[in-house]
């Protein structure tokens, strides 16, 4: 069964001059216990997806979907109060900045207790027991001491661990991590990421990992969804995305990741797309990537559909099939650096 199944989710921002599309007809399936990576530039709508799943969209946003199921129940058919209660029992979210996602005015113990009692654990001793277990589960050692501290007395990494512990207090089936490591030091980043991946196995929880850092996803995820300007551009297994990216945007993202161990020759540059991500009030005609795409053709002014590619996944590009066939005829041992040349060649 699908843990998350979304059909045609659209999110609009209501403004005086009519609605602006933030996410446009997004469809997504995610199975139990999967780790799904969502990657995209800031403003691409990836955090908005997280907010939509958690039911946290502000009143300025309008959400529509044909089907939106979380763990088997269609959220769109529930009344708002029931929906919030249901979501809170099934899904949890951790935010980018642990300093701001914990309430500065209350101790860790208070914040854990609130959540535990909201989920039916009322006995004081049971709550304390469970709090210590949770802190233990996220790798905090002096649990008793930490419980009585305020968030500002802990480091950023510790705060993020606490935030994860609080998220786990609801016993969620789905954990959404919205840029969980962006504001942390590099060494701490790895620890937190390991923790999340481990929890996926030990606590049997599906994870949506949202980030703009492709390198982070490559090792930890089962599937990857690539967002651009409110559209899902490519959605496929991690292995496929890494070895055979079919969308020009995915390719450009991969090519813009610096490679450790490969010495770049002096004067050579990492690949970067021209221009900027379109603003939501003026999306380009046709393919959203059009104005920046290195391999755009005339037909790109017509909006491409999300098409299924056998043995790969789904891609939103007119040339995906073509590209896939070309790739198959070429040798499979093709390295990434030569592929880069073909992309750059198409540009000039």
């Amino acid at each position: 069964m699908n843990l998350l199944h979304i059909e045609n989710l659209s999110i609009d921002l209501k403004t005086h001059s009519g609605p602006l599309s933030i996410i446009d007809r997004l469809s997504l399936r995610m199975s139990d216990n999967e780790i799904l990576g969502i990657v995209g530039e800031s403003g691409s709508g990836k955090s908005m997806l997280a907010m939509a799943i958690m039911g946290l969209l502000s009143s300025k946003m309008e959400m529509k979907a044909d089907y939106f199921s979380l763990d088997g129940q269609d959220l769109m058919k529930m009344v708002p109060a029931d929906r919030q209660a249901y979501i809170s029992s099934k899904a949890s979210i951790i935010f980018q900045d642990p300093k701001s996602s914990l309430n500065p005015c209350f101790t860790i113990a208070t914040q854990l207790n609130e959540t535990l009692s909201a989920h039916g654990l009322h006995a004081r001793s049971a709550r304390k027991q469970r709090s210590m277990e949770l802190l233990d589960a996220v790798g905090i050692n002096q649990t008793k001491k930490v419980l009585n501290l305020y968030p500002h007395q802990l480091s950023g990494g510790m705060n993020q661990r606490v935030a994860i512990a609080i998220a786990l207090a609801c016993k969620p089936r789905l954990l959404i991590a919205d840029e969980p490591t962006t504001s942390l030091d590099v060494t701490i980043q790895a620890q937190i990421l390991d923790l999340i991946v481990n929890l996926n196995k030990t606590e049997n929880v599906g994870v949506v990992l949202i980030t703009h850092d492709f390198a982070l996803l490559s090792e930890n995820t089962d599937k990857i969804g690539v967002f651009y300007s409110g559209h899902m551009m490519e959605h496929a297994a991690t292995k496929n995305i890494l070895t055979n990216p079919l969308h020009p945007y995915t390719r450009s993202l991969l090519n813009s990741v610096p490679q450790l161990g490969k010495r770049h020759t002096r004067g050579s540059r990492l690949f970067a797309l021209k221009g900027q991500i379109p603003t939501i009030d003026k999306p380009p005609v046709g393919c959203r990537l059009g104005p920046r795409c290195p391999s755009a053709e005339k037909q790109c002014v017509k909006p491409p559909r999300l098409i299924s590619i056998p043995n790969h996944g789904k891609v939103r590009c007119h040339f995906a099939k073509q590209e896939n066939e070309r790739k198959e005829t070429e040798s499979n041992v093709e390295t990434r650096s030569t592929r880069k040349q073909t992309i750059l060649g198409a540009d000039s």
Partner: peptide, 8 residues
């Protein structure tokens, strides 16, 4: 030059 400058 690429195509985008013509219609974007």
């Amino acid at each position: 030059m690429s195509i985008q400058s013509q219609f974007y």
